[in-house]
């Protein structure tokens, strides 16, 4: 076990230090992506013609391999954390924009009309009606985005050891010690699962109106709506 947690000295970091670094490199981009995608999605909802071109360009951006993205950025931001985080923010944005657009659009018109009739202004209506109803879908998008982000940080290893836990992969190669690679893969996967669980918990807390528990009932009554939304995201986002 000690062997498993041993971190080679050339990384100049501890196990927990790498974890914190990895989470920072993965989660700040998702947060940045969320902050940008909320207004962008709102624009796409407001001006319908904007959505198809946004969707097309984001699909192309999403297809660009992360490594190529990193390398191009080295010229501007050097071999730094920032270089890793900028592409990851873009990927998060790409997943989140369609998720939010679809979620906000799926709020029934009657609900919106009812809110307007009760005297909600557009801003209040967005914040207090549309956004809360969209929460499950947004979180489903965040789950896809964080999982992909946490996985992709490791690739940063290739640009001057900016891959946090991914750097262990490099050492596994040069010292020929697979245990470092196992450590990297397992720790990254566990991180991803824990963050995913935290997001699911957040959704349950934020949406007390939704049926709890797992969907064991029949068709179309599946309790876990957020999971149901994931394929739609993957469908539209990638």
């Amino acid at each position: 076990m000690n062997d498993f947690l041993h971190i080679p000295s050339d990384l100049q970091n501890t196990y927990s230090g790498l974890i914190v670094l990895h989470l920072r490199e993965a989660l700040i981009p998702v947060l940045a992506g969320l902050v940008v995608s909320l207004p962008l999605a709102q624009l796409c909802v407001r001006f319908r013609w904007l959505y198809p071109p946004v969707l097309w360009s984001t699909t192309v951006l999403y297809a660009i391999p992360s490594l190529a993205f990193f390398v191009v950025l080295i010229d501007y931001t050097g071999m730094s954390e920032t270089t890793v985080m900028i592409p990851l923010s873009v990927y998060s944005l790409v997943v989140l924009v369609p998720a939010i657009v679809d979620a906000v659009r799926s709020v029934p018109q009657e609900t919106l009309d009812a809110a307007t009739a009760m005297g909600f202004g557009p801003v209040r209506r967005y914040l207090q009606v549309q956004l809360p109803i969209a929460v499950p879908t947004i979180i489903a998008g965040l789950r896809v985005a964080t999982a992909s982000s946490i996985s992709l940080v490791s690739v940063g290893m290739l640009i001057g050891n900016q891959g946090a836990l991914g750097n262990l992969l490099h050492d596994a190669n040069i010292y020929n010690r697979p245990v470092y690679a196992v450590n990297s893969v397992v720790t990254t996967a566990v991180l991803a699962i824990l963050v995913d669980a935290a997001l699911v918990l957040t959704r349950v807390l934020l949406t007390p109106w939704m049926p709890r528990g797992t969907g064991r009932a029949g068709r179309k009554t599946s309790g876990d709506r957020a999971d149901a939304a994931v394929p739609a995201l993957e469908e539209s986002a990638r």
């Binding site: 789950r143 896809v144 999982a147 992909s148 946490i150 996985s151 992709l152 490791s154 690739v155 290893m157 836990l165 991914g166 992969l169 596994a172 190669n173 697979p178 690679a181 196992v182 990297s184 893969v185 990254t188 996967a189 566990v190 991180l191 991803a192 699962i193 995913d196």
Partner: peptide, 14 residues
């Protein structure tokens, strides 16, 4: 969820 959590690049090296 499990498959998504597995880092692609790490898995390749391993």
């Amino acid at each position: 969820t499990g498959s998504r959590a597995l880092p692609t690049f790490g898995l390749l090296v391993l």
